[in-house]
């Protein structure tokens, strides 16, 4: 017998099977955490959002109508909680600190591709920092869509279901967000040579 599907796990959890819900959590918590991390931009808040997402999903299991995939449903809760967390912040961060938690994981990911060249590493760090700044300057709408599609790798159709908008709108937002990111990077001096 193969692994149970998400829908089956939801059904079992709805019937009171906590282990099934635990399997669902184990299966999706990393992606939910990654999404929340890129939306709220801090690890601690992303952990809170991840936990809250599953707690709320558990409480709303009987409301899952099965029209969409459980994962899409979880994503929508996570996005809503992340947006709530962002909006609850009193102050808006204007500058990306050098120790922004998003920078190091990306540098570590690409470190293997260019070895230990210090100049290249410094350039990569600057580019990543500028990229973080560009993403932070995007509106919530564009940033959320960009994170869902370009960072999380969600398809337009699925992102459209999460955001409840037409696929074309998702494509337009992604296009617009990428264009603004490019403009920002060019203004920061990252033309062709930086790439």
């Amino acid at each position: 017998m193969g692994k149970p599907t998400d829908r089956e796990l939801v059904e079992q959890a709805r019937a009171g099977n906590a282990q099934a819900f635990g399997t669902l959590v184990q299966r999706h918590q990393r992606r939910i955490f990654r999404l929340a991390f890129h939306l709220v931009r801090t690890g601690a808040e992303a952990e809170d959002v991840t936990q809250e997402t599953f707690v709320r999903a558990y409480q709303a299991l009987d409301r899952f109508d099965g029209r969409s995939e459980p994962f899409t449903w979880l994503y929508r809760i996570a996005v809503n909680l992340s947006l709530n967390a962002i909006r609850a912040r009193k102050t808006k961060r204007d500058a990306v600190p050098a120790d922004d938690p998003r920078i190091e994981p990306l540098l570590a990911e690409h470190r293997s591709s260019h070895g230990s060249d210090p100049a290249r590493s410094a350039q990569e760090r600057q580019l990543t920092k500028a990229l973080c700044e560009g993403i932070d300057k995007l509106s919530d709408t564009l940033r959320t869509t960009l994170v869902l599609v370009c960072i999380d790798g969600m398809g337009h159709e699925e992102a459209a279901r999460v955001l409840d908008c037409p696929e074309g709108t998702v494509a337009w937002r992604v296009h617009e967000a990428r264009r603004k990111l490019r403009e920002h990077l060019e203004k920061q001096g990252f033309g062709g040579d930086a790439a």
Partner: peptide, 24 residues
């Protein structure tokens, strides 16, 4: 050349975004 640079920058941004991990 500018156009190529722009394209390269776009590709680079796409690559960075697509492989951006979270703390593991």
């Amino acid at each position: 050349q500018d156009k190529t640079d722009k394209t390269d920058l776009g590709a680079k941004v796409d690559k960075l975004l697509g492989t951006w991990p979270a703390p593991t």
